[in-house]
Design a protein around this nucleic acid. Sequence first.
RNA 1: GCGGGCGUAGCUCAGUGGUAGAGCGCCACGUUGCCAACGUGGAUGUCGUGAGUUCAAGUCUCAUCGCCCGCUCCA
Length: 508
Amino acid sequence: MAEQANDLMEKLVSLCKRRGFIFQSSEIYGGLNGCWDYGPMGVELKRNVKEAWWDSVVRQRDDMVGLDCSIIMNPKVWEASGHVVNFNDPLVDCKGCKARFRADKVYHVVFFENGNPVHAAWVEADDEQSAGREAFNRANSKTRRRMQLHQEGGRFETEIRRVDRLPSDVKALCPLCGHELTQPRKFNMMFKTYVGAMEDSSSIAYLRPETAQGIFANFKNVIDTSRMKLPFGIAQIGKSFRNEINPRNFTFRSREFEQMEIEFFCHPSQADQWYAYWRDARFQWYLSLGLRSEKLRLREHEPAELAHYAKGCADVEYAFPFGISELEGIANRTNYDLSQHAKFSGKDLSYFDEETKERFIPYVIEPSAGADRATLAFLCEAYAEDEAPDENGAMQKRIVMRFHPRLAPIKVAIFPLVKKDGMPEKAQAIYAACKKASLSAFYDEKSAVGRRYRRQDEVGTPYCVTVDGQTLTDDTVTIRDRDSLKQERIKASEVVRYVQERIGAGGM
RNA sequence: GCGGGCGUAGCUCAGUGGUAGAGCGCCACGUUGCCAACGUGGAUGUCGUGAGUUCAAGUCUCAUCGCCCGCUCCA
């Protein structure tokens, strides 16, 4: 099972490279961990995902507006948001008493007598010397006395190791309660950079770890200029950056990634119902674009999982080959973010309701989706192997990407059956008409038509139009369906409309 | 971060210290004419990278980068 899943992921990664969906970033230089590039097919697919999202949450609604913020913002934004904490210190947490220590201040001290350990202690200390002293003080009186007696002569040896330099098989324990400690970790995953010519502490800035804070920072601007009234939302698509300790699973956890985020502002008394609304609406969006319900699930967080400011959170999860993982989180963040920014900026970020004459800081519902994760889910969902007959009627294995037509990188491919008798010219004319209608189209006259069909199957093109001998007499063409392999004969002039009707609205 | 596996053509992979290979794909020409056709010809390699051992390294050693798996982590 796990092997099969792994197999599927490998096939998908291979196809993504082979057909130009996704490449390793800077591959010719050996790549870069956690970074990926979208090739000619991948960029179309991902754009379609983002377009479908934007259309659904902005264009089709009258209670949503868009925004596009800068990636580098005033660093105070990240102080207010809570992203700047414990900047350089790796930390360990006690799994028992929840105490938090700097990893370079916790030591493991072992005293050996003639090579045998006689006393061991976990201590919090500033350096090795004081760690040794502290450990000594914790030893029982008998051991202390023996050690004092035999200070000279090498009978006793002391081993002192800092907790962040322990071998992995040694479990670190809490100096206070003795429960297990977590691995040392840096909580700050923000990429740091410098703004301006001088690289000093006053010029430090960060690449945003999420797009959301740009929305909060612009809340007042949007209120003041857009005539939007509560309840309403602001949507943004953009790159975010997290210095993940361990990027994994193809594009799923990347260091540079793209988010599709909504902050929906409402009166505190309506927050629960808007939370439920967005949670369900966002789940439906994935279903509507072809993720199967049995692979998709909505998981409501347990109260214990919630961040201290959140009143509710649900994840939209997808059963990837590598495991069930999160595509999107929908959270009721209360008025935490706006309050924080009001506090740190000194600006009034409250909202005045003209009708009720009430002034309050709005609650916010945050549906936060990963564009790359959604794209990866659509890729996984689309990948299929089936059988199609060859020219002799024998069944051959076929690889086909069954994208929802709206997401397919190429909507329609146009072929002349053979490269003569004016068929290429006729096919070119249809191709031009498709392009003029803003359909993503592809023209191919190379090699046998069967091979051309299969090539389009591998990139998930839903429709293939073939100009044949009959076209030259009655101006009809065959149009072939990717999934059923069935062909219909339609008028050449109907191709654009035929395809448009089947790929859904939005002129994509 | 720790442990394990892997890295050779666009893809999948073979390659015993001694001339760099196969299948598929790709390109050209011809034939065929609706589902990965056939024939002929052709192009494509920093053997992940860098050191070292050796007369000689794709092959052995070390380091490093990347990918995959497991643990850990994901405020």
